[in-house]
Each structure stands twice: as structure tokens, then as C-alpha cells.
């Protein structure tokens, strides 16, 4: 056991130093956003398919899909531009 006092952690100075040459941090961010949005789109399509096929023509199906799309699109807009549309009062 070391007799030295514990030192606080320090945040990494720059993760971009770990990137291979020729790949900018902007490119990495673009790809991460692309993967997240692609996953969101596939997940949403699958869920909508299930709602429409199995919800027994319930009145809940369309409002549930609409609310999901509205909130998701506001969050995607916030991610891309920093403007949260109708969620602006709740986000920094």
C-alpha cells in the first residue's frame, strides 16, 4: 500500500489526440450522430409497424406515434442545431 495521499482524478486533456491521422473530431461526431439517428429511425419504424399491426385499431396508436415523432424530432433538432423548438423552455 502506498503511503501517498489520494489524488483527485483529472479529466482527459483531449480525446482527439487518440484519433488516427486524417480523421478529424468533426468526422467522428458526424458518424456518431449518423449511427444514433439511423438506429432511432429503424427502431421507430419497427415500433410503428407493431403499433399499426397489433394495437387492435386502438385510438391510442396514432397519438402515441405522433407524440413520439414530435418529441424525437424536437430532440434531433436540438442535437443538430441547439434549438429545441417547443422543448426550448426545458432544455439549456
Amino acid at each position: 500500500m502506498s503511503d501517498q495521499p489520494l489524488q483527485p482524478f483529472s479529466p482527459p486533456a483531449s480525446l482527439t489526440e487518440l484519433l488516427p491521422n486524417g480523421i478529424s473530431s468533426g468526422t467522428v461526431v458526424e458518424w456518431i450522430l449518423f449511427v444514433v439517428f439511423a438506429f432511432w429511425a429503424i427502431y421507430t419504424l419497427v415500433a410503428i409497424y407493431h403499433w399499426l399491426k397489433y394495437s387492435h385499431a386502438s385510438w391510442v396508436a396514432f397519438p402515441a406515434i405522433a407524440v413520439h415523432l414530435f418529441i424525437s424530432l424536437a430532440l434531433i433538432t436540438y442535437t443538430l442545431s441547439g434549438q429545441a423548438l417547443f422543448l426550448a423552455n426545458y432544455l439549456p
Binding site: W40, H68, L75, I76, T79, L91
Partner: peptide, 18 residues
């Protein structure tokens, strides 16, 4: 940071909706 927050909230919301 805002993009990261947006992605985090999007994942949270989509999971909750699922």
C-alpha cells in the same frame, strides 16, 4: 455538449416509448 445532451435524451425518450 448540446449535441451529446440531445443524443442522450433521444435515447432515453425512445427507450421509454418502446
Amino acid at each position: 455538449a448540446r449535441a451529446a445532451l440531445g443524443v442522450w435524451l433521444l435515447i432515453s425518450w425512445t427507450s421509454a416509448w418502446g
